[in-house]
Design a protein around this nucleic acid. Structure first.
Lengths: 217, 217
DNA sequence: GCTATTATGGCACTCAATGACAGAAAGGCG
DNA sequence: CGCCTTTCTGTCATTGAGTGCCATAATAGC
């Protein structure tokens, strides 16, 4: 194990696809897959259709996703990540509700239909167990990041049991309000952004009685 | 739509298998499946092996479970249900911690290895995405029941947003402590029942600051 | 016994998913 | 420019999970 500072041995050949590029490709596949799932349902959609829709071979599709159901994951992750990113910008001197109102999100500029597509998948997850499973897993993956945010706010460690549980609580509040929103949307009931903020604030407040969500002095 | 009280038309032929019997059969399959999964891993275990181990044909196995991964569900559900049942016995005048200590569970008398098997699956879920997904789904399914318990304790409705979020919080606290326990067990670290009670109480207290868990006067 | 209903098994089949191998597409270097 | 190296993608063959279909066994009323 030489500790000499070695010059990286000059990489040869084709560079591995960048994380960014790979994620974009996965997202593109996800969009097409969800489009088909919404139109025909999960069972009636074949991997071949998805691959064809994106212009890839079936074999390559299975290199990007381990199963056809998991094709919905990037879209769900994106919406989850957007929320987590917003929480990362949460200033210490603001309450959660104030921040939610202030940090109005103009829907990810990349593709305006993504949010709607993700919500449609969440609505479908009521009857598609595979979608429900993926949605829960995606949501759970955000907990460590939320734990960082909370730990930073409270001056504690992200690994502490209390912090992890509070992160899970925050995630659960977000999950439930999102599901309500998705169901309402699927049923044709319109919900405004203000409603969402209000409900989410109420959820967090109800669950934690101010442990999370308050402004810090 | 006649509202006349009609005598049920005297059922003929073989009666459908009772729910109870069917669940027992599923549990039996689950035990064998988990035994094989623990010994060989998920990928190396075939549906044929599971069926053979229980003495069923493969065709019948797929009538009880829609996939081989979902064979772990009954064992996980059982341990989850045991906890929910304990919470149902939670007297109003006791704190959660007091009740946990008082209501010591002698491990379900049916099959003593079930708890250990379930914990093993949970530990495996760190590396097996399919197990993780099922574990999360099983846990989420307990939330409505927890909502009933909480609603009853607080004199509110189970459908209220606040109650549902508190139920999800309680479920998350239980999930996290259970996972910690499972991981410790898999690593050979012994944890006593008292430790579990203490950690779970701490988790609930930390997350809710007394919204849940306190004794009611 | 006969008949109706359900549970199970056997068989063929579909298709999601993987492994193996062969080109094609990037790079660096002489 | 060729030449080499590495990665990406496609084609083909194969496995195995899961289903439809039909026959048979089991259970229950008549």
């Amino acid at each position: 194990m030489t500790t000499v500072a070695e010059t990286p041995p000059a990489p040869r050949g084709r560079r591995p696809m960048s994380e960014r590029r790979r994620d974009l490709q996965r997202l593109e596949i996800s969009r097409e897959a969800v489009r088909l799932f919404r139109a025909q349902g999960l069972a009636a959609t074949s991997g071949e259709q998805i691959a064809e829709g994106v212009g890839l071979s079936v074999r390559t599709l299975w290199r990007y996703f381990r199963s056809k159901e998991s094709c919905v994951e990037p879209l769900l992750s994106q919406s989850s990540a957007a929320f987590v990113a917003m929480l990362r910008r949460w200033p210490r001197d603001r309450s959660l509700e104030e921040h939610l109102i202030a940090d109005a999100r103009p829907s990810s500029p990349t593709s305006p239909g993504d949010d709607e597509a993700a919500l449609a998948v969440i609505a479908m997850s009521r009857t598609e167990p595979a979608f429900r499973a993926i949605w829960l897993v995606v949501h759970e993956r955000s907990e460590p990041v939320l734990a960082e945010v909370i730990a930073d706010r409270l001056g504690r460690e992200p690994g502490e049991l209390a912090v992890r549980v509070q992160a899970a609580t925050l995630a659960a509040a977000l999950r439930i309000t999102t599901e309500d929103y998705a169901v309402a949307l699927a049923d044709g009931v319109a919900i405004t952004g203000e409603d969402m903020v209000a409900r989410l604030s109420e959820a967090v407040r109800a669950a934690t009685h101010g442990v999370i969500g308050e402004a810090l002095t």
